[in-house]
Design a protein around this nucleic acid. Sequence first.
DNA 1: TCCATTCGATACCCCAGAGGTATTGATCAT
DNA 2: ATGATCAATACCTCTGGGGTATCGAATGGA
Lengths: 285, 285
Amino acid sequence: MRYFVALAETLHFGHAAARMNMSQPPFSRQIAGIEKALGVRLFERNSRHVALTPAGRHFLGDCRKTLAAFEAACRDAQLVASGVKGELRLGFTMYAAQSVIPRLVRRYAEIRPDVHLILEERIPTEIDEMLLEGRLDAAVNFATGDNPHLKTASLGRDRLQLVVPADHRLAGEEAVGPQQMEGERLIAAPAAVAPTLRSAIAIYFAAGGVVPFFGFEPRLQQTIVQLVAEGLGIALVPQSISAQLPAGTVSRPLIDAPEFDVVLCAPAASKSPTVPSLFEVAMMA
Amino acid sequence: MRYFVALAETLHFGHAAARMNMSQPPFSRQIAGIEKALGVRLFERNSRHVALTPAGRHFLGDCRKTLAAFEAACRDAQLVASGVKGELRLGFTMYAAQSVIPRLVRRYAEIRPDVHLILEERIPTEIDEMLLEGRLDAAVNFATGDNPHLKTASLGRDRLQLVVPADHRLAGEEAVGPQQMEGERLIAAPAAVAPTLRSAIAIYFAAGGVVPFFGFEPRLQQTIVQLVAEGLGIALVPQSISAQLPAGTVSRPLIDAPEFDVVLCAPAASKSPTVPSLFEVAMMA
DNA sequence: TCCATTCGATACCCCAGAGGTATTGATCAT
DNA sequence: ATGATCAATACCTCTGGGGTATCGAATGGA
């Protein structure tokens, strides 16, 4: 096809052959071969003049399109392999949506404008599942501590904080410990949804020798604080949630507050070419 | 590329090779060759499982597009060569635009819907020029009689007719001959524009022994009858023009009226694949 | 745990076909 | 008429695509 285009552009077998870095005789044969294969005369020629037939003229346009598609295919394959182009399915928790996701996504989109980011908001446990099943390339989640199938990069550390109704007896305390919360109804996400936070809470109370009483178990931290605002209980939620506490609630620091990492994670065996630069962005920020 | 698509679709070297009518070992080598040429790993594979890499997935889509473009190019080349698809630059006179062109074009478009008709309205002499220079594939024109470089097919015969102002002295005549028009100002297209009609008129008068007096020389028959309507003279115009005579004019038959052919013509050496079926349509109608 | 089976990779061979050189034949300008 | 130009042809070479035989790794059943 390149041969054909070269000849169609030069209308001279010798020159076209030279452009293709070959000698004229085999070039002539190639053109004849194309015409024979198609069963169509593409050039009107005698030993002096070469001209395109109507079919050849039409074929020239089609060849250019085909060659362009071919070049693009090769180029794009390399770009996708290098991670410059392609897609990245990024999972994240609602918690992350409010804290680290916006900046992370913005920075990544700046250095990789041709990567199509597919953002999937899910609950923490579902994110891990999807990562391991390959339905996500990477995700922002609470650190699970030790999963050999995942590689992680810390995006920052956060701590739990007490949130109580404004008129609650603990609202006036400077800092609160486990014992002071004894008997209170604790609103928290179930372990099946946010194991990291749930176990952090459990350990915190266990360390204080208190058996926590959990009631209501919504999935989102945002819902939890709404229920607190309604006076349905108290909650231990990430500090960065406090930025948007509903009216009628106050937050108090915890004594020896449990801390946890927010991490970017991806399958350890991930070969998604777009993931490494996401980790780079994460480490830089 | 076909090999790649086959493997991407089957994800099995043996089956893909079978689909390509070849054995597995050379097929494997081809795939490896593609990956090496691109410098990109397209399949993640061990001796048990074959899977597309992200780059391979993207490449698959591009390959399908490229192959489709290639198939279309080959198919279209054959269609264009056979005259089923392509373009046809058809010249015609304003006279023809009113008479034979609409039906001819309509019938042709019915049997050749994929041929792009480029209609070019020109004066008769210019049409001949353009045909010989190859700027038109075919044209509807007045018969010139004998041009060895053109092949023609008659589209019908027409005759000249007298058109005079409604209040003209000849308006009441049953039929009119040359002598009766002696001294009248004749409005006609110049020989440089419409030689066939002009010479037909000249011969008609010469046969009657009358020397015609030409005044005004518009290019279009339609303009000629408009000038007659304004009382600026009389004219001999094709009968089929009479269908749309302007108000204030009447037409009268001529005694021994000059006749002429309206023909479809194309360069005798024309290799435009779309032209033959236009001639077929013309002959049928 | 071991063996049979499956499947992709490798080794080696063969030949079609792409490319090279020399030459012919046709066309055009002088 | 003659030389120059240019595509086509003849003939040769050798790369590379395709074939067969085989290996080696992974899997599943006994």
